[in-house]
Design a binder for these strands. Structure first.
Lengths: 184, 184
DNA sequence: TATAGTAGGTTTCATTTTGGAACTTGTAAA
DNA sequence: TTTACAAGTTCCAAAATGAAACCTACTATA
């Protein structure tokens, strides 16, 4: 498969990666959350080639995670600022940071600490259930087919990455005959 | 900068990306969390070239996110299973999924739904403060230098990606003179 | 007036990485 | 005897990348 085809996968991970799953893109976004807005700042901070940086910034603008705003006309100069769509990537960066803090820190300790404005306390952001508020780990959660998959199965499309085990377990609920033709 | 040098950045995002920030690696891990363990399964599910898959699985084993376990000796056949280090990547996949669900879904709806075993409810995992439990968004949090940066500043090392604004704000607390020589 | 610096790129080109397809090895099943 | 399966490896053309140089339009300095 070509990387460019990945956004048509029926998978929210794959689709997200089609936008941010690139070597440098997430570092650009990291910088955005630290307040960086200008080309030269990104370039010095990240150390990536200007060539690639141009390309990545353009793609982030195309994909509407950043907005390009002219702050001066002659010569024209622009800044890149996060949109809501871009701001919503924050949890991804936070969880990447959390893993890095735990598994990749050196003897000095963690590079940056988070502080929660609300309770005015140092915080380590964790995943929790939006229904009961309890903290979540991998083992606390299971996955069930959602409409994005069920509807496609009803039309006879079979997203290939979904393990058969998983689909078999839910074929009743879905009123879908997994063997071949569609039911009802 | 070369991608291979990125793990020596003083940044938990960069260091994490040095392990999982690759086009295909996170899709391999996605499959792991859905129960996939064998080479052929990964390859069919992801559709990446066998060549790359071999390489990515090896790197995940080298980096100890996966363990390679022989399940048969003749001919030798192995499975790849998540270690604790690998299991800890789960929040990253969950947040990637969350963003994709919100911003990249098609008309059918979201592909997969999460279910919380604890409260037996459909859940959308959210980030929350591990101190007060409140939900967190980008604006609710700010960042302060941690020991991993402070100690390096004291030794005269200056991680380049940290905006000067940020360091200036904390130079007092850190007893570090940002202009040149070290204090105290 | 000449020179250097700043900001935001673009161009060029050699090197690296990738995707695809074919091939390998050992075994079991039809 | 042929086919299939599983887990790779090999080869090669095509695509992506990194580094360095260049461009344009100002502004500041000597």
């Amino acid at each position: 498969m070509r990387w460019n085809d990945i956004d048509s996968e029926v998978c929210s991970v794959a689709r997200t990666l089609s936008v941010v799953g690139d070597r440098w893109t997430l570092l650009v976004l990291r910088d955005c959350f630290l307040g960086t807005r200008r080309f030269e700042e990104f370039q010095k901070s990240i150390g990536m080639s200007r060539h690639r940086l141009t390309d990545r910034l353009n793609k982030l603008v195309e994909n509407a995670l950043l907005e390009k705003k002219q702050y001066q006309t002659n010569p024209p100069r622009s800044e890149y600022v996060l949109t809501q769509k871009g701001l919503d990537i924050y949890p991804v960066l936070v969880t990447l940071t959390g893993w890095g803090n735990k598994w990749m820190s050196d003897e000095d300790g963690i590079p940056l600490e988070y502080h929660h404005k609300g309770c005015d306390h140092k915080t380590q952001p964790v995943l929790s259930c939006d229904h009961c508020g309890e903290q979540l780990e991998a083992r606390d959660v299971y996955v069930v087919p959602g409409p994005g998959i069920i509807e496609k199965f009803k039309r006879g499309e079979r997203p290939v990455y979904i393990p058969k085990k998983l689909m078999n377990r839910y074929s009743d609920k879905m009123s879908v005959n997994l063997k071949g033709a569609k039911k009802g």
